[in-house]
Write a protein that binds this DNA or RNA. Structure first.
Lengths: 226, 226
DNA sequence: GCGCTCGGGACATCCATGTGACATCCATGC
DNA sequence: GCATGGATGTCACATGGATGTCCCGAGCGC
């Protein structure tokens, strides 16, 4: 079973997470500072790092950067844990190469789901098929690459995530709330044009193939392969 | 819509929460003691339990343990409600298998968001099979898609909700008032042709299959499968 | 400083929806 | 069988809400 490194300064929370991950059959390791976490990671490269962005010593973002710059530790998937409201962190984390994030306070079930999902993806990538496809679009999760009719299309981290979410749930309608929650990590009602704007950008970049992202008026969006 | 059981000893708070959950379209049930709550849960297994940890009789944690140990009630998601600062409760609650946690005083909005998020997650975990059918008509909730003899029929959001409501209550007559309340969310007497108009549009779009929507003169409408 | 990304306000646009008027149907009483 | 009144079917249209689109400011890496 997979090795998970928890870098978190709140002892209570770290203990809780540790307990539950072990109960779910993972091997765990914990550190309560950024420096300590990096040391642990070097000593025993984990499969996944649970990283709190608010650490007493180093900034979480810095830890993430270090992790990703070391060829040995680079393979580890990273799930960001951040306090509610710090949305800038979230974006930044994703741009730096985090694989997912959960917002505090989170439920254990949610955390486990996300951890398992990330590990599953990481697993699948090692195999031959880490490619999601629909119509003319193919998305390679391991290379972080999208092609339309074989032509590469450059997407931002957020756009990639949005497209992947839609592809993983092909044919099922996703409400704006669900997308905000699963792609953005925000739990909120909608008053803004955020989702729409990014859907628009995605459609634009995908060109004619973007038509497979359907608007379901009054409900949300749906990707439906031909 | 989902069933929610509220176990809370403060009458005012219970009433407020109850009112708002109902307004949001949930079915609710309330109990103001732990023992009472367990009894209600046994009688009508809920989809989600809102559990106050500070109860007059049994400790909330004990209630949670009992809930989770009964195979029938185990399926219910649990959201803990507890006074601020009781960090220990939080840890304990989540370890015992609660799905989320709300700290008093909380805003109704926040509670609703969390309840919805938890239910959404629980839903996603169960199979995707959410297809209602009657005669030549089949309705797929997650895809938001309706087919008549395999042919897709495009419905608006409202028409879809109307058809789903009728399908869920096949063979039982629905008065216009009930439909207005459950499909439209309006509580009113009828002076307008609203329901009739939409029934008409639905029949039209369904073609010959639309005949299974029967008019029960003087009462309302009924969907009766052959 | 420049360029990129993202959020979200301010419109423009579109179409689903509610409504009242009228047509039609049907149960009822004679 | 027939007249009658109330219930239901049908229609056209305005209106508001939902979505598409544009654009600007903020934040960040280089």
């Amino acid at each position: 079973m997979a090795r998970i490194l928890i870098i978190e300064d709140e002892q209570d929370l770290a203990g809780l997470v540790d307990y539950n991950l072990r109960a779910a059959g993972f091997e765990t390791d914990t550190a309560n500072t950024g420096a300590g976490g990096l040391a642990r990671a070097r000593a025993h490269p984990p499969d996944l790092v649970l990283l709190d962005l608010m650490l007493p010593d180093v900034a979480g973002g810095e830890v993430l950067r270090m992790l990703k710059s070391d060829p040995e530790m680079k393979k580890a998937a990273v799930v960001i844990v951040s306090a509610k409201g710090q949305e800038a962190d979230r974006i930044q984390g994703l741009e730096l190469g985090a694989d997912d994030y959960v917002v505090k306070p989170f439920s254990v079930r949610e955390l486990l789901l996300r951890v398992k999902a990330v590990l599953r993806r990481a697993d699948a990538e090692e195999g031959p098929a880490a490619v999601l496809a629909a119509g003319d679009i193919s998305l390679d999760t391991s290379r972080h690459q999208v092609r339309v009719k074989g032509e590469e299309v450059i997407l931002t981290a957020l756009e990639f995530r949005l497209l992947r979410t839609l592809l993983e749930r092909s044919d099922r309608v996703q409400t704006r709330e669900v997308l905000l929650s699963d792609v953005w990590g925000i739990q909120a009602e909608i008053h803004t044009r955020t989702v729409d704007t990014h859907i628009k950008r995605l459609r634009e970049k995908l060109g004619p193939a973007g038509d497979i992202i359907e608007t379901v008026r009054g409900v949300g969006y749906k990707l439906s392969p031909p």
